[in-house]
């Protein structure tokens, strides 16, 4: 099921305020784009594996986000839950070029867990 990467320009880094997130709507659900204090950008599925909380609404700190519904904390880098919880959120390939955010469309277009 390997697929070629399809880089898609979804917006400017500056469209996301520092330490926050915005969403990209897709047919299969929302993807949350996070911007950290040092201007790194990460893309995660916008559904918390616990009870579906929208991670884009959480507080961003360091390279983590805290889910707004019940406070699970996830690494933006790996999607893994930090601390005692065992859980994982899907991540997507993303890169920044000349201040623009490029998202790999191949990965989310084939994603299964979103609905």
């Amino acid at each position: 099921m390997t697929m070629d990467t399809v880089w898609l320009d979804v917006g400017a880094v500056d469209d996301i305020p520092s330490q926050s997130a915005r969403i990209v709507k897709t047919q299969k659900g929302c993807i949350a784009l996070f911007r950290t204090a040092d201007d790194k950008v990460f893309a995660l599925n916008d559904r918390c594996p616990h009870k579906g909380g929208p991670l884009s609404q959480g507080i961003v700190h360091g390279t983590s986000v805290t889910c707004p519904l019940h406070n699970m904390v996830f690494s933006l880098e790996t999607g893994d839950a930090l601390g005692p919880d065992e859980a994982r959120v899907a991540t997507f390939a993303v890169k920044v070029e000349n201040g623009r955010i490029m998202l790999d469309a191949s990965s989310f277009a084939s994603r299964k867990d979103a609905a």
């Binding site: 898609l8 917006g11 996301i16 969403i23 990209v24 709507k25 047919q27 469309a105 277009a109």
Partner: peptide
Amino acid sequence: HEFAPIADLTSMEAAE
């Protein structure tokens, strides 16, 4: 920015 998505790709065909 809080109330609108950064991009809306819902019209894009899913690759599968």
